[in-house]
């Protein structure tokens, strides 16, 4: 607990120092010139992440569940490999391909971000469900649980920490990839970043980059807190539960 407090204090100290430096050097004023754009585009950015990540969570978790059912054992590996290969395609290329199909605007960006988020979620769902000890599945069955009761009472609650980790990774990376949406007119903070680069306007670029980074860090923090709240203390991976004998 103490180490964590120290770490947070340290981070806050660095942030405070950077802010002080930014304000004193006048850089902050230059960036804050864009505050109306920042607010507006941050909203768009969040929507890009939510509209691509939300469906990715739903589809990814369902796909992970389906792939781990005993009847799908043969299909699981090939599907995972196809997904891995698909993820190796650069996001930029997916955006370009999506644009050819869907034209410019938000739609191709959302499709690319959705596909980008899908793999970590599916992979972690599959891994989380797979690593369940067979003894637990056997006792669940032996006590008379139906397959869906086994899934909802045992499998998902136990795989939750690993699934949640996949969701967290997927969404946080999505925040960082979403600026590419600018290239197909999808909006978001990428507008400020890329325009800033094109116009040799560092303040404009920072006005996009800093909120993007802040958004990623905040989302990561919120999701990790949420995971702690949702995961049972019996399997939570922290020091909150004191093991006694």
């Amino acid at each position: 607990m103490n180490a964590r407090v120290l770490r947070i204090m340290g981070i806050l100290g660095i942030v405070a120092a950077l802010c002080a430096w930014a304000i004193l050097s006048g850089g902050a004023a230059a960036v804050l010139k864009y505050r109306r754009e920042i607010v507006h585009l941050t909203g768009q950015h969040i929507m890009l992440v939510v509209y691509s990540g939300g469906p990715a969570i739903v589809v990814g978790v369902i796909l992970g569940i389906v792939l781990t059912r005993p009847s799908m054992r043969r299909v699981c590996e090939p599907v995972m490999q196809v997904l891995s290969i698909a993820t190796a395609i650069p996001t930029l290329a997916i955006i370009a391909l999506a644009m050819m199909a869907l034209g410019v605007g938000r739609a191709p960006a959302l499709v690319a971000l959705f596909l980008h988020a899908l793999l970590p979620i599916v992979r972690n769902t599959v891994e989380g469900l797979r690593q369940l000890p067979s003894a637990e599945l056997e006792s669940a069955r032996g006590m008379g649980m139906t397959p869906s009761q086994t899934l909802f009472l045992v499998e998902l609650p136990e795989a939750l920490p690993i699934i949640a980790q996949g969701v967290r990774v997927a969404l946080v990376i999505n925040v960082g990839v979403a600026p590419l949406a600018y290239l197909v007119g999808g909006g978001g903070l990428g507008d400020l970043i890329f325009s800033g680069i094109d116009l040799f306007e560092p303040a404009m670029m920072l006005a996009g980059a800093i909120p993007t980074a802040a958004l990623a860090v905040t989302l990561d923090f919120v999701l990790s807190r949420l995971t702690v709240l949702l995961v049972s203390p019996g399997i939570r991976n922290d020091d909150a539960v004191v093991t006694t004998t």
Partner: peptide, 22 residues
């Protein structure tokens, strides 16, 4: 089978307690 199993106690060597449950 489901109804039958609920009427028969089952204990295995690896215990198989669910770690997320008290």
């Amino acid at each position: 089978a489901i109804t039958l199993r609920r009427k028969i106690g089952y204990v295995i060597q690896q215990v198989g307690l669910f770690p997320h449950m008290t």
